[in-house]
Design a protein around this nucleic acid. Structure first.
Lengths: 233, 233
DNA sequence: TTATATGTATGACAGATGTCATAAGTTGAT
DNA sequence: ATCAACTTATGACATCTGTCATACATATAA
């Protein structure tokens, strides 16, 4: 099978995973990966992986939005980050542990591309260029997450909220007008503050004409001020 | 040169980096790495790497303690984590960027083992087993750091302080009695709270007979309570 | 040595944040 | 359609945390 016919099985445009495979693998390896990869659709709030489950597949987010989160006994929930299309979502745990240390949940209807972890392992061990490239991409992802986490930790309530709103506007939707894919409670769990205070701060941003809110719809009206708040607030 | 004579040049007991090399590399590669590796000593408060500098060497902490930290314009300092002997301290940035995104500073007199990054690159690309093992270890390190950061983010002031004291006692010094290698200000920068409140909380821990303090010397008197506070406080 | 900065400690106070209560809107299941 | 559960919203209040001031101790440099 030549690369052209393999493309029929791995036909997603802009797929980073495909780019990774196609730039390093031989035709027969490519054919194998493309034929065994699975796509799985998830509805909003569907649990994709529960912390503690065995790492069997390598996950890649094709469409939708997924939250990576930690659950401490019962109610105490923390969101590590929110992944967007073309993000690797198997990041932590996958090489260092045989079990997931965090959970993944779809925030909106999402499509995940899965490849058997053993295949990835074998390819990485047999093809060093591939393995090195994979490592580079994964370490870039987790670097970003850690730096984002440190930034959120540094900021006060309004700064955290502004930072998160800007993440949606600039990094996820590329628009000043978007539908919030999360509840106020989830924003709070990401920011690390109480739900009520997120609601209050949203109201204040509205009163200060920084944003417009109608339900889940958010429009950023004063980007400059919001950026200032996300930096120093 | 056989492995026995190479050991003379790479003679550190318990060196994780050596273990990594010896389990994957051929004698000639080993000899090369062991001959070009450099050891560099740093005094307390010496800056090892400043954020923004080029990534040239792979760093491994042989002796001492090193803080990984971020500096925002002037005074605003954040400690990402504190590395202990046998930890990889080149973790973030090293594969995803050609420049460091964080700084490293010795907290106590420390010895760092450095290996030219190009050599590590070449070995990882030419020897997939080695590369994969390296990746596993690095991803384990950064996983731990991210989970530690999330834990600190979750806790209140006293919980953060208890968590940090327990890190010193259980993970760094393996003793209930130890000399603090950091100032109160640095504890605050790690916890993400004000210096005054760290000092106050330390005083309260002392009044509550959880710890004994004399200057930099700390003794944990009530481990059980401190563990409780580090979990739920 | 003195002098200067830095670190530790504590009190007072203001401001930020969390908790609790309440109410209305929204969603989802039956 | 109806009910229950969740979400959003707001006020009141307690508590936590940060800031400022002050004092003393300790380290560092001239």
């Amino acid at each position: 099978m030549d690369n052209a016919s393999i493309e029929l099985k791995c036909q997603c445009v802009n797929c980073q995973l495909k780019a990774l495979f196609f730039s390093h693998l031989e035709s027969d390896e490519l054919a194998r990966v493309c034929s065994i990869r699975k796509e799985h659709g998830y509805a909003s709030n569907d649990l994709i992986v529960r912390a503690g489950e065995e790492v069997e597949d390598f996950f890649y987010l094709k469409e939708g939005l997924v939250k990576l989160h930690l659950s401490k006994d019962g109610d105490d929930e923390q969101i590590i980050t929110i992944a967007k299309p073309l993000d690797f979502i198997s990041i932590l745990s996958i090489f260092s542990s045989d079990r997931y240390k965090y959970s993944m949940t779809a925030l909106v209807p999402s499509v995940v591309c899965q490849v058997d972890m053993n295949i990835i392992h074998k390819l990485a061990v047999s093809n060093a260029e591939f393995g090195f490239d994979l490592m580079k991409r994964l370490s870039a992802s987790i670097d970003d997450i850690l730096l984002e986490t440190m930034e959120l930790k540094r900021l006060h309530l309004k700064g955290k909220l502004a930072f998160i709103l800007l993440k949606f506007a600039e990094h996820i939707y590329h628009s000043n007008l978007f539908e919030l894919p999360v509840t106020r409670k989830e924003i709070a769990e990401f920011a690390g503050v109480s739900t009520e205070n997120i609601i209050r701060a949203l109201s204040e941003f509205r009163k200060d004409k920084l944003i417009r809110i109608s339900g889940k719809e958010i429009e950023i009206l004063n980007m400059k001020s919001l950026v200032q708040i996300a930096k120093f607030g």
